[in-house]
């Protein structure tokens, strides 16, 4: 699956300081470009029961997925959760899958998603969730990372 380049610009940083560049992986056919304000959503907010409040600005949703071990009710498949987040107006959705190794598999057939869905983990995820935890307002730009194709070594 194509990789994503995620550029994060803090709203309250010096004009000269450079954006933070992180990486992730697009799921299924959702590779594409997106830009918006970073907003966290609790995993349960993407169940059909609850309706997240409408955002005024253009936003990108980030969801920290919990490990299946701690019994957060799954309520609906991850692909439907992603679709619901996009239907609620998100320009894209970022899933922190550091603690949910099954996420990538659940989203492999995401051809029908209208906008980008990106998986992040490890240091990339911690950087993003660290900003959220400190309520540090940020603008996120997502695009497809251009990669050189992997040619096997010829002798």
């Amino acid at each position: 699956a194509p990789r994503a380049v995620i550029k994060v610009t803090l709203l309250r940083q010096e004009p000269t300081s450079k954006p933070i560049t992180l990486e992730g992986v697009f799921v299924g056919g959702s590779a594409g470009y997106a830009e918006g304000k970073l907003m966290q959503s609790h995993p349960l907010s993407l169940c059909n029961t609850s309706e997240d409040e409408r955002q005024d600005s253009i936003f990108i949703t980030i969801v920290k997925l919990e490990s299946p071990g701690n019994k957060v009710p799954q309520c609906q498949p991850l692909l439907d959760k992603a679709r619901l987040a996009l239907q609620r107006g998100a320009e894209a959705i970022i899933f922190d899958v550091s603690d949910d190794a099954t996420a990538a598999h659940q989203l492999r057939e995401a051809f029908s998603l209208p906008k980008p869905v990106v998986l992040v983990e490890g240091a990339n995820a911690e950087e993003l969730m660290g900003l959220v935890n400190k309520n540090e307002e940020a603008i996120v730009h997502i695009d497809i990372m251009m990669e050189s194709p992997k040619w096997p070594p010829y002798d």
């Binding site: 990789r3 550029k7 610009t9 709203l11 560049t21 990486e23 304000k37 600005s57 603008i139 251009m146």
Partner: peptide
């Protein structure tokens, strides 16, 4: 072949990133 983002030089602010910074501040 083409470059991947991780190979981009990070030391200095490229024009593109500067433009990104300005647009973000202008819009927000």
């Amino acid at each position: 072949s083409y470059k991947s983002a991780s190979q981009w030089e990070m030391e200095h602010l490229t024009d593109e990133e500067e433009d990104l910074q300005k647009r973000a501040l202008a819009l927000f």
